[in-house]
């Protein structure tokens, strides 16, 4: 199940957890838990909105359009797991 999540993410056709939950036929709360577990084990990482050097910028507050939006990306470990 967890490997399927990584594989489906790597395919790039799924954009949200809701779509992923539907594709896997699991409830979204369960998918959220699986994503959190994959993140805690280093297969996914939360993408940080912003960049190095933004800290000193007077306009940095404008950069993150939604601070509650969580975006997960595959880590190198995640990509290796997909490839294996």
């Amino acid at each position: 199940m967890l490997k399927r999540i990584l594989r489906m993410m790597a395919m790039g056709e799924i954009q949200t957890q809701i779509e992923l939950a539907t594709a896997l036929d699991v409830p979204e709360p369960l998918l959220s838990q699986m994503v959190a577990q994959l993140a805690s084990q280093g297969y996914l990482t939360r993408a940080v909105m912003g960049a190095d050097g933004c800290e000193g910028c007077s306009l940095h507050m404008q950069c993150n359009p939604d601070r509650r939006l969580r975006i997960w990306t595959l880590t190198e470990k995640g990509q290796r797991a997909v490839a294996s």
Binding site: M9, A10, M11
Partner: peptide, 29 residues
């Protein structure tokens, strides 16, 4: 291919203090 997924937050009633703070910080900047 893209390799990411989004976790969309639940909708809720906006908080005036949060919005006020957001506006204030941007104006100051």
């Amino acid at each position: 291919p893209a390799v990411f997924i989004m976790e969309l937050p639940l909708y809720h009633l906006p908080n005036t203090r949060t919005i006020g703070l957001y506006v204030w910080q941007n104006i100051v900047a």
